[in-house]
Amino acid sequence: MELQDHVEAFAAAGVRVVAVSPEPVEVIARFTERYGVTFPVLSDAGSAVINKYGILNTEVPEDHRLYGMPFPGAYLVDAGGRITQKHFNTNYRVRESAEMVIRGDLGEWYDAEGYPSATGGSVVSASLGSRELKPFSRIDLLVRIDLPDGQHAYGEPVPEGLVATSVTVTGPEELRAEAPVMPSTRPLFVEGVGEELQVFDGDIHIRVPLSYRNAEAPDGGATVPIGIEVRYQACDELVCFLPVEERLTLDAPLGGHLRPERD
């Protein structure tokens, strides 16, 4: 199970991984032993919990051997037991979901070997939330603005004369970028402006969900060029620096989508 690859990263972030399968204990035990699965895989044979959650896949007829399986998906639960993230969709893939949680929701940032990335100067960088772009799957692009200590950048709205932080993604026609997910801001009273503005501090992580709607890369190549334009203006307690506009290109390898997944 692909989750095993991420157990250490989850553990480092203080997150316990638990899977629930509709199969009997014996079937799960054979599988976990064979693939060296170390986290608990719980058996919901009879689908009582799946039914309680209301996620029984009702498209499977009652007399079918696969009846009882859930619509697959995942919940991230905080220390108080509340759901802070949900990943459910028709093309749910546990690997992408785990990577999105580790790299986005948990605020962890690891530049794992083999993850495509691009750097512009010492402050701005971007990396793909997976080893490759998969046709018709949702993958995160992570853009990082790592400001020197004591500096901040601005969130919307900004008064005239200041530039708000923004990320714009461009690429071939088949590349679709959703609205960037910005981290939360804090209010800061700025003397020079005479009003309270919303600011990002320090190391700013911005997530842009991407999907690529073609099985082929453009021009018969093996990679999809992703253009990333980052704008921000850094200020510290005393001065504001000139607005910065960085342009990066990340060449994302295009993976196959017909390969069977073992989840």
Binding site: R16, V17, V41, Y53, Y75
Partner: peptide
């Protein structure tokens, strides 16, 4: 629910006061 070793696991006890990533799979 029982885990792969047959031990009964309470999801909230298993969290041990921490966060958890709970995944519902179609099958292993």
């Amino acid at each position: 629910l029982p885990d792969q070793h047959g031990n009964q696991v309470d999801i909230h006890e298993a969290r041990n006061g921490g966060r958890a990533f709970v995944v519902f799979v179609r099958g292993t």
